[in-house]
Amino acid sequence: MKRAFAVLLAAALVLVAPVPAYGADSSYRTLASATNPDWMRALPDGRSLAALSIPGTHETLSIHGGALTQTQENYGDSAHTLTAQLRAGIRMIDVRARVNSGNTFTIHHGATYQNANFDDVLARLAEFLSAHPGEAVVLRLKQECTGELGSCADASGQRAFQDIFDAYVGGRPGLFWTPSVTRSAAAPTPALGQIRGKVVLAVLNGPRGGVIDRYGLAQFSGWHDGSSEWVQDNYNVPNVGAIATKRDQVRRFLDATSAGDPSKMYVNFASGSSLFAQPQQVAGGALGVQGVNPFLLTYLSEGPEVHTPVTRTGMLMLDFPGGGLINKILTYN
């Protein structure tokens, strides 16, 4: 019996052991090779946020927890990884928070604490925007904990998530674009001149993706868990072979963004994962299957003789972005 159990255990470990993704290149795991701290500054004030092509990061601060959890290169705890992303040109971020004792937020990916608190996130954002007042950062904030297996549980006896968020906003006067953090009235999509030096809340999501109150931008009132009208987030990639399907989902939404309503923001998650396709594999590729990041860099670089040209990328939410991919997205502005 023990021998049979050992054989089964060994087989299971082979199945779930992470297969290395391809090596770093200009599309993958080379964030620091891009330096774009002021790319918005030269754009006209009247340009709508919806018209921009913006590189973003999925699970922006997920740098701990191993192959199943890590989604970004590690440039330091206390949200210093965020600073590195902002300097590279990232302007949309995806932050997941747990309600902690003292009515505070800590940053988690599932059950894994990411050695950062929401105070750290706001401090890094304030520091960057003070030094680069021509820029703006779009924030998706999600209550992370469901209390289920594999997730975290919020601390008991605390105030509601939105009440804690309001206290953070009140403690950082001038940091947020006020219409986006007004609980009772969702905001229209702003022009760049309205939001320079500010954080724009795109959406405040509950633990299962539902929208909390009327925070954020009005067009995202239907942003739930996964995909919705303006969001592509097919995050379940069941195995390495299914990365090809994820690539196609990203491509189709990219084409829809170019052809779609120019007054609307489109948010395209290039990320995905499962037990048998870790985030690094989906982003960088593995076992001879091309990852989403190198595919995107190629697709965005191809001319009209290959396919209908992309005219805007919308918000591309990336795992382990490379400097070349970030730079390519910015050329569409």
Rank of each mutant, 00 (worst) to 15 (best):
A84N: 09
A32N: 07
H132G: 05
K246H: 13
T104A: 15
V203Y: 14
H109L: 10
Q290V: 11
L13T: 07
A6T: 12
T182S: 11
G260Q: 01
A202C: 05
I63N: 05
G110L: 11
L330N: 00
A11H: 05
H132D: 07
A111G: 13
I93M: 07
T71L: 06
M92P: 02
P173G: 10
R183M: 09
F269Y: 15
A10L: 15
V289F: 09
Q72M: 05
R252S: 15
A191Q: 15
D233F: 10
Q162N: 14
V203K: 14
R159H: 10
F320E: 03
T182V: 13
P18W: 07
N293V: 06
L300D: 04
S221E: 09
T298M: 10
F105K: 06
P190Y: 08
G209P: 13
V137H: 10
A97G: 05
L15N: 11
Y266A: 12
N115K: 14
I243C: 00
L68P: 01
A50C: 05
V306C: 01
A242M: 03
R87E: 08
S180W: 02
P279T: 07
V181I: 02
I326T: 07
V211Y: 06
P133S: 07
I54P: 01
C145P: 05
A167D: 15
F5A: 15
M1A: 14
L318Y: 11
M40W: 11
Q281L: 03
I329A: 02
L61T: 06
R140C: 08
F320K: 07
D154F: 01
Y22A: 15
S156F: 11
L325C: 09
G210E: 15
L122S: 08
D25K: 00
G197I: 12
P188H: 11
L15F: 14
A67R: 05
N234A: 13
M92H: 15
Q72T: 07
L318T: 04
R29E: 09
T182K: 14
L49N: 02
L52C: 05
S258Q: 01
P18R: 11
A32C: 01
A283V: 10
D248P: 04
K328F: 00
S258R: 03
Q85V: 06
V231T: 10
S130C: 08
A126S: 15
V289G: 02
R124C: 07
A32P: 02
M1Q: 14
A131D: 15
G323V: 10
G147R: 07
I243F: 00
L139P: 03
R196N: 11
L61P: 08
L31H: 00
S26D: 13
A242W: 05
N268S: 08
F176Q: 03
Y28H: 11
N234F: 13
D163F: 08
T146F: 01
N36Q: 12
G323M: 04
T245E: 10
P44Y: 00
K264A: 12
D163A: 14
A167W: 04
G56V: 03
A111H: 07
S26R: 12
L141C: 02
N115E: 12
K198W: 04
P179I: 03
A202T: 08
F118T: 03
T189D: 11
T69I: 14
R214E: 14
A155T: 11
N103W: 04
I63V: 15
F5V: 15
G157M: 04
H108L: 08
N205W: 05
F295A: 05
D38T: 12
G170C: 00
G150R: 00
P55G: 03
P37M: 01
